[in-house]
Every structure is written in structure tokens, then in C-alpha cells.
Design a protein around this nucleic acid. Sequence first.
DNA 1: CGGCAATATGCAACCGAATTGCATGAATGT
DNA 2: ACATTCATGCAATTCGGTTGCATATTGCCG
Lengths: 146, 146
Amino acid sequence: MCRHCDYKELLKASGLESNSNRIRVMEIVGNSSYPLSAQEISDTIDRTASINRVTVYRILDLLVEKGLLDRISAGDRSFRYGMAPNAHHRHHPHFYCRQCSAMECLSPESVHLDTAFLERTFPGAIEKVEVRLDGICKNCLQKLLK
Amino acid sequence: MCRHCDYKELLKASGLESNSNRIRVMEIVGNSSYPLSAQEISDTIDRTASINRVTVYRILDLLVEKGLLDRISAGDRSFRYGMAPNAHHRHHPHFYCRQCSAMECLSPESVHLDTAFLERTFPGAIEKVEVRLDGICKNCLQKLLK
DNA sequence: CGGCAATATGCAACCGAATTGCATGAATGT
DNA sequence: ACATTCATGCAATTCGGTTGCATATTGCCG
């Protein structure tokens, strides 16, 4: 999906050494068209190398903390990971299918959100805004109709 | 908070028998100014009666399924419960403090969200829209500054 | 180059929130 | 009063994720 991101560069720009695991994680997330679970990321790496799931969790924590990745709450009790907004990735909402638990990225324009007023008046610090639509995805809808 | 809702009526209108546990849950959620965790609801009931947490979970599942309550994902891996939108309760966004895990309800006007385009064009079925802002709440901000 | 500190990784055990299976208890209709 | 249905309790389990601690790997300095 993303031919624009030099993951090594991104890591360095955030003050992180780049090692093969970190780069793999960034690549996998960056190349996905939908936000991935830690499990999916771990499985993908495992296909070529071999990595402990704890290591994956730790890398994800680190990348989220450094602002390279976004941790997105799914409609269930798990998290997904996607590229954090940057020059090549605009912030966008997500759709969660309560039937198959899959998540999709929606286009940045699909939902218009105006938080300006709140940003000015809210007494706390707002760090991120998450918009998630829940329902049944196209696929599951078709299966249900059969 | 809510003097407008006759919980017994609401239950009946959704085709549910009303028993004391269900009414208590509805009252507790309806009277709260912020969305509550199952734990909080369970604890509150326990102060006057005695109830198993599994029962609370089952009542919550039921009330969510019937559309009386909303299950809201917090920024962590847990859920909160609030009144579902109805005549007296407009749909509104929430704020989650990553420091103390507390959630707040934001006013329905605080964020302007336009999903019309998506509702028309999305190939799946959209059942609900969740807007959550994450950050540090006023309280925690003050503590951090000390 | 050797040695040492700092990081990164693996493994096993653990955690919290929620869910399941199954037995018991209450309520409802006939 | 009895059967059927629904609600509750308790124990055990699941699922994602996290922690503690031991071992490897890396970077850095002399």
C-alpha cells in the first residue's frame, strides 16, 4: 500500500534504532489496507522468521509510544494497529464488523468531524480522536441473507 | 441525572419483563453522569443488595442487545455502559483519560460529525458510530504539573 | 580486539475483564 | 400442584495483553 514510507527513516526520525524486527513490523502495518491485530502481525512475521509474541507486543508498544503507529480500539476488547497520521497517511475513521470482527479503514473524507470547539474549551489535554463505525460488513451481510 | 426516564416503562417498551435487578442496572446507568464499567455497576448494586457479577454481565448484554444501553469501548480493553440514545438522551462523544482510565461524556454539540455521505455509500450496515477522544483529563493534568 | 553496559528477545507465569457450562431458584401459565 | 421457562449463582475457562526474569545481541569505550 505504501511505497512512500521509508520505514528505516521513520524509525530514525523518531530516535529509534532500526533492527529487522522493528522494520518488519512497520512494513507489515504500513502495507496493510486495514488495521492489524498483534496476532496478525506476529503470524505474518512468523511466516518468514520466528518471533515471540511478547516481542511483537513490545515493539508495538514502543512504536505507538513514539507516535509511529496508532493503537485503535476495535469494537471487541482487542486492539488493532495502523500507521499513525503522517505526511503520507491522513487520519481516518474505521469500520468494525461485529459479525466477523474485521476492521476496515474508511476514507479520510468519508466522515466530517469538527472538534475545533472542543479543542478550545475542553479542560484536559486531547491527544487523539477516534471515530469508529460499528455494524455488519458487506461480506457478512451477504452471508446472512442466504 | 435523569428524572425523565421511567425505566420500568423503557424495559416494557423493549419487550422485557422488569425485575429488580434490571431496574437497578437501568437506574444506576441512567443516573450516572459518565459511562460506567460493569464492575462499577456491580459494586453499586452490591451496596444495597447482593448480586453476582455474571448476572450483571448478562443483564448488560441483554439491555445492550435490546438497545436500551450502549456498550462503549474505553481506550483500554474494557467496556463502559451508558444510556442508549432515546427521547431524553442524545448521542454524544466520550473522553477517555489514559492516566486514570476515567471516562467523561461530552456534550452532543461538542463535536460535529457528518456521516451522511458514508451512510449512503457504505456497502455494509452501519449500526452505530462511536466518537472517543483520548488524552489526559483536567484532574490528572493538575496532578502531573505538581 | 576484549570487556562491559545497555537493549532486545524469549519463555513462563500472570492479570483483568468478560464468557461459558452447568446446577439451582424463582416466576409464570395451565 | 406441576411443568416449562427464565433468571441467578458459582466455578472454571477464555482471550488479549503484560510482567519478571534469564539469556542473547548490540553498541561503545578503552
